[in-house]
Design a binder for these strands. Structure first.
Lengths: 341, 341
DNA sequence: CTGAAAGCGCTTACAG
DNA sequence: CTGAAAGCGCTTACAG
């Protein structure tokens, strides 16, 4: 691999001039620039990022930090999408992406902290999980800028999150528009911020129609399919079951559908179902599940754009909210006997 | 952040001596070593990988190269698992992981090639896709070692792949052991190497029992759920339908299950079903799908271990094969009326 | 066992 | 507009 010195020799200029050309800096005559550019093109020279990083005091690498516990990591069906979005946008700005799936917080002081101290990252994107606080603490001690994907930035770092509130609002309006009045909700315990927002959006949608969420119709699972099935079973076995159920994620909605079918109910005629996330399973159910899609790719893109802006000297922005999309499929429809408001 | 010079000053030694301590080299007296180590511990000093990379001529970064086309990327349900395995093993050897989801081959000359030339990677792991060849070509021109996850290493690079053959053999033995004799297979066109191996394993299993795969019972989908449904419909509507179907991936198996249920068949009494991969959907079906699990995490681990071995000066190994596991669930059982061989 | 010196391949003031 | 020199923070021979 040629070095900048060889390029300089071939183009009969100094390394400093080659550097100016490489970095698109002024004060190079057009003819000189053309000559250098030609040599670069002929040799296929690409400057060493190792050397560049040392002298320019930047690494051209962004860290994607995903704290997780083994049972959690795969729970997020959008991680790959988020990664793709981040990488595409980072590449546009000349950055590479380093992956660090930091283990549980207790190990945070280990690999993760070491990575940050090793001076290898120009900035970082932290994916919010339940245990994000210790990692945020480590980042706060560093000079490099960082961005959170999720809610509750534990400090002054910008955050990017999906419009869970708006998605829930749209889903609720959709069901109300179909004529439903007895809406039940399958929530989750514990409930991360995103699910809080979804619940808030549902309440707001009901409020628009002059309704409130009957606390008896708010039940909780633990985000798993089985818990959704159990919660729905509870709701459906009551004297006055709901005509529609919104589950705060798709897996619980899939469980609810299973409970409904087991009781001989027809979806959506006897029971409408709406989920959140649009995981692969959603479109494979029969009937396919109406759900609120997570904008994974866009979340990643927006987070990377924000971080690159910070690195470029832009003032920190406030939290960005990425639109969600209501995907209407077969699991939601008008109730068999429309009720009166 | 302190530098090695400051540590040297604090420990009253030369930077060269600090370097020896940092790199666990001999020729440092125990007392000196202890003093330096104490200063390092007190200051929390971590050497700059930027500087270390430049002088030691290595970056401590491994590239994870995933060529993909937009519609392909998410098809592999094990990418996250593979990533986790690679990262865990790489970290054990002091390496970090850089993610490069290189776009379609036509863009390969762009970001991907630039990354390789920028001298940023000590080695690379290439995830096999249909279009892996152009990327392998780029890697071959580099001095850095690399490893393929998948089949058909296009050259002398070591490859690591799952034991698709063995998994298919186990699945076939399982069905034969239950008493099935009329086995059908839903394959795919085009058929990547992994699926070829699976088909080979099925034939081998049948051969053990003195059977051969009836070519009329070998049909093809395109790996999608819908194609599996159509293929199964074709098989089930015949005068003499099979008592068991092996689909070369879970999505097609899920489609086959849908086709069976639509025809009022009972799974597994009327039709046993086996898939491959153990995607999340597999355990969520009713009945849950018997399938051959992909050892994603282990694949990643093995690939990273091989690559780190190469970087440590070990001789190139031949291809490593990672065991697969047959997960028996509710979709497979004895046929209603056991046939005679 | 220890340290002074040179060098990794760039960029950054600075002088011309 | 151009280039000589110093420096980024380490490691690597080499001399002592």
């Amino acid at each position: 691999m040629p070095t900048i010195d060889e390029i300089a020799r071939l183009a009969r200029v100094s390394p400093a001039t080659v550097s100016k050309v490489l970095n698109n800096r002024p004060y190079v005559s057009p003819t000189t620039r053309a000559r250098v550019e030609q040599v670069i093109a002929e040799t296929g020279f690409v400057p060493s990022l190792r050397a560049r990083g040392l002298s320019a005091r930047r690494s051209f690498i962004l860290g994607l930090l995903i704290p997780y516990r083994a049972d959690q990591f795969f729970a997020d069906p959008h991680l790959l999408e988020i990664m793709r979005g981040i990488e595409a946008e980072a590449n546009r700005h000349g950055y590479h992406l380093l992956l660090s799936t930091a283990r549980a917080p207790r190990e945070a002081a280990g690999a993760f902290s070491h990575l940050l101290r090793s001076d290898m990252l120009d900035g970082a994107i932290l994916v919010e999980t339940l245990d994000v606080q210790p990692f945020a603490e480590l980042l706060r001690q560093r000079p490099a800028p960082w961005v959170v994907i999720g809610y509750a930035p534990p400090g002054p770092a910008p955050a990017v999150h999906a419009d869970d509130f708006g998605g829930a609002l749209a889903a609720t309006r959709h069901l109300l528009g179909l004529g439903h009045r007895r809406l039940a909700v399958i929530s989750s315990t514990p409930r991360p911020s995103a699910l809080d927002e979804r619940l808030r959006g549902i309440r707001a949608g009901l409020a628009e129609a002059g309704l409130t969420l009957d606390s008896a119709l708010l039940v909780s699972g633990d985000c798993s399919l089985a818990s959704g099935e159990a919660a729905a079973a509870d709701l459906l076995d009551r004297p006055a079951p709901p005509t529609a159920i919104v589950a705060l994620n798709d897996r619980m909605a899939a469980g609810a559908m299973r409970a409904a079918i087991a009781r001989g109910l027809e979806v959506p005629a006897d029971l409408s179902l709406v989920g959140f996330d649009d995981i692969a399973l959603a479109s494979l159910l029969s009937p396919a599940l109406t759900t609120v899609r997570q904008p994974g790719y866009c979340l990643g893109e927006a987070a990377a754009a924000t971080l690159c802006g910070l690195l470029g000297g832009q003032a920190p922005t406030t939290a960005a909210v990425i639109p969600t999309e209501l995907i209407v499929r077969g699991s939601s429809g008008p109730p068999r006997a429309p009720e009166r408001g």
